[in-house]
């Protein structure tokens, strides 16, 4: 494709129209309202569905929802997640859920906030929340462990409570 160069008129070739229009544009913008946001004081309203940092959540009964199935670890594209499974020791406190991670690490330096972990989680235990500016003074500090993730994640209202329901059913059927 050949774009024909527009032949400039005598007036245009004097360069004055360019100066005038350049001046008009710059003046208009000079007095326009500024779009800069004064960041630490002013902040964006984080929209619904924003994919910020992934954190672990507890349900309304304060139970850690993660059961250490390691699907997120498997699906995580940058391998940011590392789960330490609980091992064979029977933990009475977990009840019929049987399993809870011994440790859950997310390397926030590696995380790409893709949301696969949230999508794959069969227990709705991990959610990409609204935090977007994570800071730390060392690489170690940027690896978030289970306690920190749970603290930051907060509570998630679970409408199904499948484990509690199972437990209830089992009790009703006389199985402790």
């Amino acid at each position: 494709m050949i774009v024909q160069r527009k032949e400039l008129s005598w007036w245009e070739r004097l360069y004055i129209p360019a100066i005038i229009s350049g001046f008009r544009v710059t003046v208009r913008h000079f007095f326009k309202k500024k779009v800069t946001m004064q960041y630490p004081e002013e902040r964006w309203v984080v929209p619904e569905g924003y994919r910020g940092a992934p954190y672990l959540v507890k349900d309304q009964d304060a139970r850690t929802k993660c059961v250490s199935c390691q699907l997120c670890e498997f699906v995580c594209p940058p391998k940011a997640i590392k789960i330490t499974p609980p091992g064979p020791k029977v933990n009475k406190s977990t009840g019929n859920v049987e399993k809870e991670p011994a440790d859950f690490e997310i390397n926030m330096l590696r995380c790409i906030f893709c949301g696969f972990c949230q999508e794959v989680c069969p227990e709705e235990a991990i959610f990409l929340q609204k935090d977007y500016s994570l800071t730390g003074e060392s690489r170690e500090e940027m690896i978030y462990h289970k306690d920190k993730l749970l603290e930051l994640g907060g509570t998630h209202q679970d409408d199904i409570m499948k484990w509690a329901k199972k437990n209830q059913e089992a009790k009703a059927q006389g199985i402790a």
Binding site: S68, C69, Q70, E73, F74, P85, G87, P88, E98, K99
Partner: peptide, 12 residues
């Protein structure tokens, strides 16, 4: 297996 129970997911 009690020995392997909750140690690692098999797909890893």
């Amino acid at each position: 297996s009690k020995d392997f129970r909750f140690q690692m997911r098999v797909w890893f």
